[in-house]
């Protein structure tokens, strides 16, 4: 990696000012994507601002009808958390299936969503559960947060602080993992709750998307059979050496049905 200045602020304000004061500042959360990128010299930030010393960004709590997960909470903590397991088991399952044990012990929810990898699991979780992203400046609905491949609604100096997940009546996440990386080739989170039915797909396209036709069908009949005939077009989906767009389109249907069946 190239040289950079390293900061480890103890407060969110200090982090924000370190970020705005840096030439090419970059926030590091768990570092699961950033550190390999730096090691391969594919990025050259002037400053790295490490959020790991900010206690306010860690932890899981209940807030009204929502589960609020601090941005620096690791995937392993989400997967193991009793409240998450009790209230939104689909989210615990999703976290349990991210990467491998090392990644889950280091990687964080805030880092994952700010990076917005099209094959990451959490975008499916946030959109599928109708979550709200909290930042140091505002709140952003998940539907508005992910704007494209590795792109989010975050401003340059904006830092994710937490994600609030409304507790659904039922939900499940079904993932077809890339056998090599274990990222999602297709991941589908299906939920039903106060906000209606949501079907969110990650991995298949450039960014997470919802399948409204399936949502409508499930709203009247929440069963795998209800979405049996609904095909997602392959146009615009990702295609690589692991899976063609056509295969991904097919898998969206399979994973959606499996998620619905698992949600019960």
């Amino acid at each position: 990696m190239y040289e950079f200045n390293y900061h480890r602020p103890a407060s969110l304000d200090a982090a924000a000012s370190a970020l705005s004061g840096a030439g090419e500042g970059k926030i590091v959360a768990g570092g699961m994507t950033l550190i390999p990128t730096l090691k391969q010299r594919l990025a050259q930030p002037s400053d790295l601002i490490d959020l790991s010393a900010i206690a306010d960004l860690k932890g899981i709590s209940e807030d009204g009808g929502s589960i609020v997960i601090g941005a620096m909470t690791t995937h392993a903590e989400v997967a193991d958390n009793a409240t998450v397991k009790a209230k939104i088991p689909a989210l615990a399952d999703l976290a349990e299936g991210i990467g491998d044990i090392q990644v889950r012990n280091r990687g964080t929810i805030g880092g994952s969503i700010a990076n917005a990898d099209p094959a990451a699991d959490y975008p499916g979780g946030l959109v599928g559960l109708g979550a709200t992203v909290r930042t140091n400046k505002r709140e952003i609905a998940a539907d508005d947060f992910f704007t494209g491949m590795f792109e989010t609604a975050l401003a340059e100096d904006e830092i994710v602080t937490a994600v609030a997940f409304p507790v659904p009546d039922k939900a499940a996440y079904a993932k077809f993992a890339n056998p090599a990386s274990r990222y999602a080739i297709v991941g589908v989170l299906v939920s039903q709750g106060a906000g209606g039915v949501r079907v969110a797909v990650t991995g298949a396209g450039p960014s997470v998307f919802r399948v409204t036709e399936m949502e409508q069908a499930l709203a009247s009949n929440f069963s795998a059979a209800a979405i049996e005939g609904i095909a997602v077009p392959a146009d615009g989906l990702n295609s690589d050496i692991h899976a063609s767009a056509e295969y991904r389109a097919h898998l969206v249907g399979v994973m959606a049905r499996r998620a619905v069946a698992a949600a019960g």
């Binding site: 056998p179 090599a180 990386s181 990222y183 050496i241």
Partner: peptide, 16 residues
């Protein structure tokens, strides 16, 4: 080389 890392080159693992 399109399979230049473990992200794309899949080694067998115990659970396979």
């Amino acid at each position: 080389l399109l399979t230049g890392s473990y992200m794309d080159y899949c080694m067998p693992r115990a659970d396979d």
